[in-house]
Design a protein around this nucleic acid. Structure first.
Length: 641
DNA sequence: CGTGTCACGTA
DNA sequence: CGTACGTGACACGT
């Protein structure tokens, strides 16, 4: 859908425009009726009594009426704020705003109707950090308000973030579900009266009432969730980490990253050509056409016509995944498995590039959206497009990264990433002297660990030993079993068991820590990161073995992945703060879990590199010190190191 | 048209 | 029988 002019979202019956609004509110891929007005099926709503809709006492403001209202209510307690806007491909506008104060009626206004005094009063109030606000998903509001020149400061509670910190695993953070759960009421009576039908379009007044109800709900929810937040000891996480992160992410999303359309198109052509070749070759070798993209048809060809040996089972048949195809390639003279691998690889790259091209904005940049409340461990995720899974492992895939380049007015891209941050966190949390020493010795980590496990001098560690140890080290933080390790390394489970025993003989503190973590989580019901981010795992006491063991692996991974996520957020805030403190123009663009990408202004490369290294390394003090590697270049690929 | 499955990209 | 994600294609339901 094209980005529309300001006010597009006001067209009440236009379903496309409605979807834009929903997108702006980040109810993506949603059945809008369900998301807007139905109760979240995943929320614990059973104990809540009949949910009455909130009947709001509201006033629709005309021009000149906002300034006096703000003068009266803007300086008392916090105001709830809810807005409707559009945001697509890096551009957007706000079409409706509602404010609710604890005392007196809520108000609604169309920002286009404000007179000069209103506009001035609103801009001043919204930017004033000493005037407290409560919002639901403040990042979306900040992002689109900035298009009008409005900077939002003074957000005391973001109800979506608060719910996330209180219960990070919940399926939905939609305002409606939270309202029912924490306040025991629906957001607006219109929904109930209309039998769950979307109330938009009934008339302007109903629309305004609905938004004012939301603002009132947000305000009340902020109160309730704010209390819960303090109860679980997450108030500081909210104030010092998640809220500042939201604000930074809003700026990063708005900035976007410059895309080289020509390069991406060239890549697309290249991958499409390779796909076509693979398809033709596969058809020729099989003797007839079939859809290579259909696992079902492929199974019929591989295991039916060709009579190749069966692989592992899936729910519906036999797997044709990359591991299975590679295995089949060794089992047969037939070329199809290899052709399929080539097809899948190239097809994957093609669709990745196609997706990227579709998201390039009119400003020539790609504006991802970071989701701050989906990953139960505390990580961010990225959508539309996902810039956290751009290929990097193969040369052909990595070439896509050359399509992300430094923008006009800037000198280079700078990437900075933490080396082995999760293993360092594991060393820190476990306090295992051997592992900590392995990080402080200055030698290559995996070589050092391998030398211990295989009981050989460090200079006698061969690449094969290093590979196995690296896989095992990372696997441990995921709850890897001896069987899983054997599968991955292509060795017997006995050999894998021996490797793990040797590892734990040398690094017993790690085993003790992992066991302790699961046990404590079983006792308390949750795990915790060093910054007090909780993850609840009720399945730890499940009678179902599969569920229980799954929860155990989650329990031992969550503090490690979550602590790393906390650290990266701290690092991002420190880097951003330092850039501002030193009056630099360079800016942060991307985050990829343990890496950040900056766009460096002319003449700032050296100072940026020094600053980033300093702020990231010093984000927290671990027993195994943080290490950062930095690189820069004209594009994301050449900025790698 | 929505949903589930399979497959696969990243950390 | 290794954690955390998002996306696309297909197949099947409605």
């Amino acid at each position: 859908m094209d980005e529309g002019p300001a006010g597009l979202a006001r067209v009440p019956y236009d379903t496309e425009a409605l979807q834009v609004v929903l997108d702006a509110l980040e109810f993506r891929h949603a059945n809008f009726r369900e998301r807007l007005f139905a109760v979240d099926p995943g929320a614990a709503v059973e104990e809540v009594e009949p949910a009455e809709g909130l009947s709001v006492d509201g006033t629709v403001l005309g021009g000149g009426e906002l300034a006096p209202w703000l003068a009266e209510h803007g300086s008392r307690g916090p105001l709830g704020l809810s807005a409707v806007g559009v945001w697509k491909l890096g551009r957007g506008s706000v079409s409706e705003i509602a404010l609710a104060a604890a005392e007196g009626p809520a108000v609604w206004f169309d920002p286009a109707q404000l007179d000069e005094a209103d506009e001035k009063a609103f801009a001043a109030w919204i930017a004033d950090a000493s005037r407290p606000k409560v919002l639901h998903d403040s990042k979306s509001a900040m992002r689109v308000f900035a298009e009008h020149g409005w900077h939002i400061a003074g957000v005391r509670v973001d109800t979506a973030l608060a719910a996330y910190l209180v219960t990070p695993g919940r399926r939905s953070f939609a305002l409606e579900g939270l309202s029912v759960e924490y306040l025991g009421r629906e957001v607006a009576p219109a929904a109930a009266e209309a039998g769950g039908q979307l109330a938009l379009g009934t008339d302007d007044r109903a629309e305004a009432d609905a938004l004012m109800s939301k603002a009132r709900t947000v305000l009340d929810l902020g109160e309730a969730l704010g209390r819960r937040l303090e109860e679980v000891g997450a108030g500081e996480l909210m104030r010092d980490l998640e809220l500042p992160t939201s604000e930074l992410l809003a700026r990063m999303e708005r900035a976007g990253i410059c895309a080289d359309r020509d390069w991406l198109s060239q890549m697309e052509q290249q991958f499409a050509g390779a796909v076509e070749q693979a398809v033709n070759a596969a058809h020729a070798s099989v003797g007839h056409e079939f859809n290579l993209g259909s696992p079902k048809q492929l199974q019929e060809v591989l295991f039916g016509e060709l009579g190749l040996p069966k692989t592992k089972k899936t729910k519906t048949g036999w797997t044709t995944d990359a591991d299975a195809l590679a295995w089949l390639a060794g089992q047969t003279e037939h070329e199809l498995p290899v052709q399929m691998l080539r097809y899948r690889e190239q097809q994957k790259l093609r669709s990745t590039v196609e997706g990227l091209i579709k998201t390039v904005s009119v400003d020539g940049r790609i504006h991802t959206t970071y989701n701050q409340t989906v990953a139960a461990t505390g990580r961010l995720s990225s959508t539309d497009p996902n810039l956290q899974n751009i290929p990097v492992r193969t040369d052909e895939g990595r070439a896509i990264r050359r399509g992300f380049r430094v923008g006009e007015g800037y000198e280079s891209l700078l990437t900075a990433d933490y080396s082995q941050i999760e293993l360092r966190v594991m060393a820190h949390l476990s306090e295992d002297d051997g592992l900590i020493e392995a990080f402080t010795s200055g030698e290559d980590l995996h070589d050092t660990v391998a030398a211990h496990v295989f009981a050989v001098p460090a200079d006698r560690v061969d690449p094969e030993m290093r590979r196995k140890i690296k896989a095992m080290s990372y696997g441990l933080a995921y709850g890897l079993s001896a069987f899983g390790l054997s599968q991955q390394l292509g060795i017997t489970p006995d050999e894998a068991r021996k490797l793990m025993d040797n590892y734990f003989e040398r690094f017993g503190g790690v085993r003790d820590y992992l066991r302790r973590t699961v046990e404590e989580a079983r006792a308390t019901g949750y795990t915790e990161t060093i910054m007090g981010r909780r993850r609840y795992l009720p399945d730890l006491t499940s009678d179902n073995r599969q569920r229980r063991e799954m929860a155990e692996r989650m329990a031992l991974n969550a503090p490690i992945q979550g602590t790393a996520a906390d650290i990266v957020k701290v690092a991002m805030l420190r880097v951003d703060e330092a850039l501002r403190a030193e009056n630099l123009t360079s800016r942060m663009l991307l985050q990829v879990h343990d890496e950040v990408v900056l766009e460096v202004a002319p003449g700032e490369r050296e100072v940026c590199e020094e600053l980033v290294r300093r702020e990231m390394t010093g984000a927290v003090s671990l027993r195994a010190p943080l290490a950062v590697s930095v690189g820069s270049g004209a594009d994301w690929e050449s900025a790698a190191h």
